[in-house]
Simulated scan of single mutants.
Amino acid sequence: MKLYDSDIASTFGGKTPRHILSLSGGKDSAALAIYLRDRVPEIEYIFHDTDKELPETYDYIARLEAILGKPIVRTTPVDSFDHWLAVYRGMLPSNHRRWCTKMLKLKPFEAYVGDGPVINYVGLRADENRTGYISTKSNILAVYPFQDDGLVRADIIQILEDSGLGLPPYMDWGRSRSGCYFCFYQQKIEWVRLLETHPELFSLAMEYEEKSVQFGDQFYWSQSESLRELALPERVGKIKSDWEVSQARKRSKRKNRSLVETLGGLEAEDDSHLRDGCLVCSI
Rank of each mutant, 00 (worst) to 15 (best):
D242I: 04
K253T: 10
S138E: 10
T50N: 09
F109H: 14
W221T: 00
L194P: 00
W221L: 02
L36W: 02
L36F: 12
I159H: 01
E190A: 06
G237I: 08
L263T: 04
W191Y: 15
D276W: 06
S212G: 05
G264S: 07
S163E: 09
G265K: 05
S258I: 05
P41I: 06
E53F: 01
L160R: 02
E225W: 04
Y208V: 00
D172Y: 04
I46Q: 09
L259E: 12
C180R: 10
T136L: 09
A33S: 01
I140W: 04
D28W: 10
V280Q: 00
A231E: 13
S6T: 05
V122L: 08
L227W: 13
S29R: 03
L165S: 05
N256A: 13
M91S: 12
N139K: 09
Y220N: 07
A86M: 05
I283H: 02
L227D: 02
F202L: 02
D217C: 00
D38C: 09
E269Y: 11
V213R: 13
Y88T: 02
G265C: 07
T197I: 01
I159V: 06
S241D: 14
I8F: 05
L32Q: 05
A268H: 08
G123N: 01
D155M: 11
Q158Y: 01
T197V: 03
Y60C: 12
A111M: 15
Y185S: 07
V40E: 14
E209T: 02
V87E: 03
A31E: 01
E44M: 12
L104I: 08
L160S: 00
G166A: 14
R249G: 07
I283V: 05
P233G: 07
V113I: 06
K15N: 11
R254T: 14
Y88F: 10
